[in-house]
């Protein structure tokens, strides 16, 4: 990469109904992260602890699908403030493991977890207003907001993330060839 001449791009990331594996994989770009930081700065992200997305954020990267009310609020905040929104990982683009619960009605799931299943003492379904309510179904993020790009994989490899972001930063249509484009 050439020496940066422009203002650094603001990149915000979030993990919704995911496992943070994609964020972990992001860190697998290793020392290339330093190169990347010459071009970008992190905005709201688990990596920074900034609490709100800047209104002029350039890129939002979302890991995980949408399973509860809070996921919807967070996702919409990112969509509203980011010029480009990227889904990263299988959970974000097709729901992945969390959508297994879509095979059952939500009441059946909650009954199983809190009433009939073993393990919980009081058997009550939590109703604290602090807790986000689960949606009746889990959704990939593109079913809730407009998504501009997707980096598939569970998780995508550090190399795939690097290739994708460098393409994007260089103004190319991101492409992952054989070996980098994986859904598993």
């Amino acid at each position: 990469m050439d020496t940066p001449v422009k203002k650094k791009l603001k990149v915000a990331t979030a993990s919704l109904a995911g496992c943070f594996g994609c964020h972990t994989s992001f860190l697998d770009i290793d020392e290339r992260l330093l190169t990347l930081l010459e071009y970008i700065e992190f905005d709201r992200s688990p990596l920074t602890d900034i609490k709100e997305v800047s209104p002029d954020c350039d890129i939002g990267i979302i890991e995980g699908g949408v399973c509860n009310a809070e996921n919807v609020h967070v996702l919409r905040e990112y969509r509203k403030n980011c010029k480009v929104l990227i889904a990263i990982g299988a959970c974000a683009y097709n729901g992945n493991i969390p959508v297994y619960r879509n095979q059952f009605p939500l009441p059946v799931v909650l009954e199983e977890v809190y009433h009939t299943g073993p393990g919980l003492a009081n058997g009550l379904i939590p109703n604290d207003p602090e807790l986000p309510l689960p949606l009746n179904k889990v959704h990939p993020i593109h079913e809730v907001v407009k998504v501009d790009y997707t980096i598939p994989g569970c998780p995508p490899s550090g190399d795939a993330i690097w290739k994708f972001l460098t393409d994007l930063l260089a103004g190319r249509e991101p492409e992952l060839g054989h070996g980098l484009l994986r859904y598993d």
Binding site: A87, Y93, V99, H142, V147, L181
Partner: peptide, 21 residues
């Protein structure tokens, strides 16, 4: 199916899932 999707470079979902039982 997966390999053909790789070959075609499919990576931009837009349709809603049916999540059939």
């Amino acid at each position: 199916l997966q390999a053909t999707a790789y070959h075609l470079g499919f990576m931009s979902p837009q349709f809603d899932h049916f999540f059939p039982i």
